[in-house]
């Protein structure tokens, strides 16, 4: 019971928000790391496949990271849905007939929806590239050095316009989610000394960068810069 007492602050809405912020930031770290890895695709098949193989050569580390991510992700999603329901309830039965938002941004009002789009994307994305269920033929490719040809898998996948459209959509969702989420997490974790303006602008710039760099990959394939 002592433990519960310690965690009692976590039972408050602010505590739960802290869980979301912490898990969200962990996910941001992954998004950044993943991005850095993915940009390797521009360095050519050899480098990219080598990087992928390297990752898989340390399975222990990989699994530690994976489990951390899964835990963070599950916490993030479960708590966010829980809080979103609570917040909706807090509004009460009767909605305003008129609503003229003064500063609240679209992004901040649609966090849950952007999150759900991301969830759908991730399911698809894992089926596509991790488990290779979407294009089993691409997943079986092997490169000249006998490594799984992840480069080809990615570039071939992005030949399909609809796949690209879905990826782009997900990137828009991610941009929206992070453009608010980043500064929001700062606020939630009590960074009031940084100044909310700095935090906000920083968040938008960061998520803009993430958006630009991630979308550059499917775009490059569609524009023929990256060839299979």
């Amino acid at each position: 019971m002592q433990v519960f007492r310690l965690f009692r602050p976590l039972a408050t809405s602010v505590g739960q928000k802290c869980v979301m912020a912490a898990s969200g930031l962990l996910l941001v770290l992954f998004v950044l790391g993943h991005l850095a890895g993915n940009l390797g695709v521009f360095s050519g098949r050899d480098v990219f496949n080598g990087y992928a193989a390297l990752l898989h050569s340390v399975p222990k580390l990989l699994w530690v990271v994976r489990i951390t991510l899964v835990v963070a992700f599950v916490l993030h999603v479960v708590v966010s849905i829980r809080l979103s329901i609570q917040n909706r309830k807090a509004r009460g039965g009767q909605a305003y007939a008129r609503r003229a938002w003064q500063t609240t941004s679209l992004a901040s009002r649609t966090m849950l929806w952007a999150g759900l789009v991301l969830l759908a994307f991730l399911v698809f994305h894992l089926c596509h590239l991790t488990w290779g269920w979407v294009y089993p033929e691409h997943a079986r490719l092997i490169d000249a050095e006998g490594r799984p040809d992840v480069y080809a898998q990615v570039v071939l996948g992005f030949q399909n316009v609809w796949v690209v459209v879905f990826y782009m959509l997900a990137q828009v969702a991610l941009f929206m989610h992070l453009s608010h989420g980043f500064s929001s997490a700062g606020h939630t974790l009590g960074l009031n000394s940084v100044g909310s303006r700095v935090l906000r602008v920083g968040g938008v710039v960061l998520s803009g960068g993430i958006f630009a760099l991630y979308t550059s990959i499917p775009l490059a394939v569609q524009l023929g810069v990256l060839l299979p």
């Binding site: 809405s13 602010v14 739960q16 928000k17 809080l83 609570q86 917040n87 309830k89 807090a90 509004r91 938002w101 003064q102 500063t103 609240t104 941004s105 901040s108 009002r109 966090m111 608010h180 500064s183 929001s184 606020h187 939630t188």
Partner: peptide, 15 residues
């Protein structure tokens, strides 16, 4: 009391 959690949308400050 049934108040919601803050998701930092800043509408409160504006009004």
């Amino acid at each position: 009391e049934g108040f919601g959690a803050c998701t930092n949308t800043r509408e409160c400050q504006a009004v």
